[in-house]
Each structure stands twice: as structure tokens, then as C-alpha cells.
Design a protein around this nucleic acid. Sequence first.
DNA 1: CTTTTGTATTTTGTATACAAAATTCATTAT
DNA 2: ATAATGAATTTTGTATACAAAATACAAAAG
Lengths: 224, 224
Amino acid sequence: MKNIGREYENLDQKVYQVIKSMIENRQLLPGQKIPQEKLAAELGISRTPLISALKFLEHEKLIETKPRRGFYVRLFEIEEMISIFEIREVLEGLSARRAAQTITANQKKELQKLFKDFPVGRPIEDFQAYSKADRQFHNFIAEIGSKEFLTSILQTFNIIALAYQYPTREGLVRDPNDTIVDHHNIIEAICNHDPEGAEKLMRKHLELTIHELKTFNAQEKTGS
Amino acid sequence: MKNIGREYENLDQKVYQVIKSMIENRQLLPGQKIPQEKLAAELGISRTPLISALKFLEHEKLIETKPRRGFYVRLFEIEEMISIFEIREVLEGLSARRAAQTITANQKKELQKLFKDFPVGRPIEDFQAYSKADRQFHNFIAEIGSKEFLTSILQTFNIIALAYQYPTREGLVRDPNDTIVDHHNIIEAICNHDPEGAEKLMRKHLELTIHELKTFNAQEKTGS
DNA sequence: CTTTTGTATTTTGTATACAAAATTCATTAT
DNA sequence: ATAATGAATTTTGTATACAAAATACAAAAG
């Protein structure tokens, strides 16, 4: 008989996770060069699996390779961020639609719990906690209705959106006191098994972020 | 002064292209194991850049890694194909919309040339040529309106769609004599700078493919 | 004959080695 | 002082080496 259940994980997959979270919580900053030898030593491995992981991350656009110059943490221009949010708009619209079609009773409970500390009306103060809930919200919806495929694409975008921190609020573009309403509405549509509504609301939600980004970009260009 | 224009390309990037096209034109078949030593020898390189390229392709889901077992050309289930086409539907809808907004006079000419050998009404015979034009069509629209980001995602899906060849026609799901009408309509909408129409038509176009796939899948399950 | 066990062979994952390229930095020239 | 030059140092890209794991296959047991 064959031993199928074995869960072996290569070093590069572990390193991949480590670097990903280092980018996520800003231990590695956008634009920064990756010191291969140093980082490998720190992680207690050789350069081989590290490079392997970096190659993998290159494809997620979290890392950029400059041949003969090394690996760099990707730095996004605002135009690129707009383009990324446009992709998110249609993809997350899809995942909201699918979620509304397939959500189970247990998943409903979990989804409704996410923003329980942020009821509509009460002003939001803890931006960091809200930012975290926001991320969980988008990830969870992706997971409910989608095959592994879509989930992994969306997770990448999520990290990019996060990595591109805004000077003002903790990784958030729009004011939480505005977005909280969207979130509650989307959750309601999904829990009511309303695919069309869920898709429309999710797209609107992200469309407003895009609008905000475009405004910000226009301001930058004219000179703050 | 710094020498910026230098175009150096690592070996793994070249190998990446080679393997990609090997999968595209079926020299490597879905499900097949990649013989590392042998392939490296054939390409006249060591295993290092080969593995690097395979890692890269793993992320595009063209290659699957089974730890301690090696690399395999990815084999897609029909459910996964349906999921992929759902993603294509919304993403290509977006790229059609953007294309309609930004297309230039020269791009219009090029786009209109693509199906000049396949006028509406005349029955299509050369499926291979049509399949090629189809691919160019989708790639070109992606390139017109999108940043590098979306283009690279869509290209991946395109290859997957192709790699999953249908037993009947050359990588095509729907009958070319039906799809040719869609293609001409989408081109018209884009050239008339009609973003809403272009998006709607493109989504409809892919929605029909999804429907076809679902029907096919249902038949398979009941027993041919 | 089929299944199990044990051994030989191949393949994988990772470390290490090393030439070629890039970077640093002190030195000289402008 | 600034720019140019060129060794000394570091880093990169790739090959090679090798232990550990997987596979293939032959012999033994049921």
C-alpha cells in the first residue's frame, strides 16, 4: 500500500511563507534590497531554497528581480495600485456572487462575527483592528465561494493592497466610518443568498476605493 | 554614469519560456512527470536554473510540485476549468471595457485584421488557424487596455485554456461558426469606444463557454 | 500466482564552490 | 571640491556534490 497522507514540505515553501509575512508586517520594506547571504544565515539555510522562494514571490509581484543586481521588495506606483484595485473589483465581485450561492449556516455565523466590534453608528477608533477585520472579510469571502485558484490570486492582491500602506490610516484608503456600512450590507446580501446584490455591492465598495485613489493621484500630480 | 539599458536575461527566464511553449504545443503532456536530469541535459544546462523555472511555472499552475516526488505538468479537472473560465469572464470583461476606453487608431486596424479570413456567414474549416486567431484576439485585447499586471494573469489563463485541449476541436470549446459572430461584435464595440457594450459582450461570450463546459460535465457524470 | 521484503538504482532537496559581474571605496587627476 | 580610475570586496548566477528519500526490481514467503 502507498503512503499518501505524508505531509512533507520543502524548505522553500516554508521560507516563502516567512518572507511573505515579513513583507506583510513591514520587516522588509518596499524598495528594499534582499540581502541573500545575510537573510539565509538568519534563517539558518543556504541560498538555494531562499532564491527558490524569492523566485516564487516574484511571480506574485511581491518581489522584483533585477538581473545581476538582486531581489527587491516590490514598490508600487499609484497607477499600478489603481489597476490592481480594478482587478479586485471584478474578481471580488465574482467571489461575493459565488459566496452568496454556496454559503453554509456555519459560514454565515463566522462572517457575521467579523465586524461585531464595529456596529454601524459607533465611531471607529482602533484602525489597526479594523484593518485586520477588513482583510479577514475579503479573504473569507474569497474562500467561501471559490476554488483554490481564485483564492490564491485574491490573497496576493490583498497583500499588495496592504503592503502599499497609506501615510494616513493603517493600510486603509477610505475612512472606516464609511466602509463599515458597505461591509454590513455585503454580509447581509451574502447571508440572504442574493448573488446579484452581493456582486453589485462588492463592486461598488471597491469602485469607491478606486475613486479615492484616483483623486489622491490627481492631487499628487498637481502638487499636493 | 550608470548603464541602465543593459538587457541581461538569466538562464531560468529563458528556460521558463522554453518549457511554457513545450506545454503549449504539447511536447509535454498534462499529467506527465518532468525528467529533470534528462531535460536539463537536453537544454544544455544544469538542474539549478531548470528547477528555478519550474518553480516559477508552479505559480502559474502550469506545473505542479509533489514534494520528494518531482514536478508534473498540471492536469485540470473540468470543475477547475469552469472555475477558470468564470475568472476569465470577469477579467476579460474588464479588459474589453478598458480597451474600448483607450484603443488607438492603429490598434483598431490590427484588431480588425485578426478575423479578416473568417467573415460571418462563410463556414469555417481551418480550426487550427481559427484557434490561433482566437488566442491572439484575447491576448491583444488584454494588452490594449491593461497594465502589465492584468496581461500576465490573463496570458496564464489563456495557456491553461489551451493546454486543456478538447477531444473534438483544436482547443476550442464552442463551435467556431457560433463564436465568430461574438468576436466580430466585440471588436465592433471596442472600436466604437463603447466600454459598457464591450464588457457585456465579452462576458456573454465567455458565459456561453462556461455553459458548454457545464453541460459537458453533466453528461460525463451521467455516463457519456 | 500474488504479496511482501530487501537491496540496488535513480531522483530529489539542499549545501557548497567558484567564475563573472557589480559595488565599494580609496586614490589620482581635473 | 568634483569627477574619473581602478584595485579590493561583495554579490550573483550557475554548476557540482552528496545525503536522504523514492522508485524499481528481484528474491522469498504466503
